[in-house]
């Protein structure tokens, strides 16, 4: 069998997803708190604090501007942490995957469940920020802001898939530092979470254009500001390509790691 044959998708992933959900339910309160509190305090602190020193951006308060970035970044973080730390525990430390593979599940089912679960959990983080946005009335058009819900799901899928590649290649937890330092942190700082990308030097803008978080924010920000995003197809396609390519690679690397 060629390890890099296309991933097989099957509904058999559902009992595995339910397993993850059942574990999450037991730890839901600290988990929700962690997902919500951290990004929320950043958003409120910077939004009100720095925002008071700043002009309006694109006709919106800095807090509103920042909230769209936080929505994406919080979703990204949550997906990454889930598939990296928790995923690696399940694969390597607790050997949960091994137990599943002894049952009539294929590795592809287990991975699809990781992808779906990472996206589900990160969607919750995104929705928590959206709830804060709604509570504070930051959105300029409520119906428009509803479109961020499917967007958050897509962002969750993208970053879960990307994280799974790293999980597949990691010898230990320490390895994740490379990914966070060399991929996640640059995205947070270059892709327009805290300030418009256009304010960056040309070279950094070009780099950012290739990073998936830019495309997520390019969609989320107009939706919060109540306008229709430009080049929707291009941004969605970008996120889908990152998702598909990463998931394919992650499946290949994981098969090679566990099934030879």
């Amino acid at each position: 069998m060629n390890a890099f044959a296309p991933p097989r998708l099957s509904l058999r992933f559902l009992p595995v997803w339910r397993r993850h959900f059942l574990v999450w339910r037991k730890l839901a309160i600290p988990s929700i708190l962690g997902n919500l509190a951290d990004p929320m305090f950043y958003m409120l602190g910077f939004g009100y604090g720095l925002g008071s020193l700043m002009p309006r951006i694109d006709g919106a308060s800095y807090l509103t501007f920042l909230s769209a970035g936080t929505l994406c970044y919080s979703t990204m973080n949550s997906a990454s942490f889930e598939v990296l730390y928790s995923g690696f525990s399940r694969m390597h430390v607790q050997k949960t995957w091994e137990a599943m593979l002894n049952a009539p599940l294929a590795l592809d089912d287990v991975l699809l469940a990781e992808l779906a679960w990472g996206a589900s959990k990160s969607m919750l983080s995104g929705l928590a920020i959206l709830a804060v946005i709604w509570t504070l009335g930051l959105e300029h058009d409520w119906t428009m802001s509803l479109w961020t819900i499917p967007l958050v799901l897509l962002i969750g899928l993208t970053f879960s898939a990307m994280g799974l590649v790293v999980t597949a290649l990691s010898p230990s937890y320490d390895f994740f530092m490379y990914y966070f330092t060399l991929a996640i942190t640059p995205m947070v700082l270059l892709c327009g979470v805290f300030y418009p990308m256009e304010r960056m030097p040309q070279l950094l803008q070009v780099v950012a254009m290739f990073l998936p978080l830019s495309h997520a924010i390019a969609l989320a920000r107009p939706l919060i500001l109540g306008t229709i995003p430009t080049a929707i197809g291009w941004h969605v396609l970008n996120l889908l390509l990152w998702t598909g390519a990463s998931y394919w690679l992650a499946t290949g690397f994981t098969r090679r790691r566990l099934l030879s």
């Binding site: 574990v23 607790q94 050997k95």
Partner: peptide, 22 residues
């Protein structure tokens, strides 16, 4: 090596594992 789910009770371990068999 035992790979029971540490987050579950004994009965939940059996329940969740049974679901993997459909």
């Amino acid at each position: 090596m035992d790979n029971l789910d540490p987050d579950f009770s004994a009965a939940e371990n059996l329940l969740v594992y049974g679901r993997y068999f459909g």
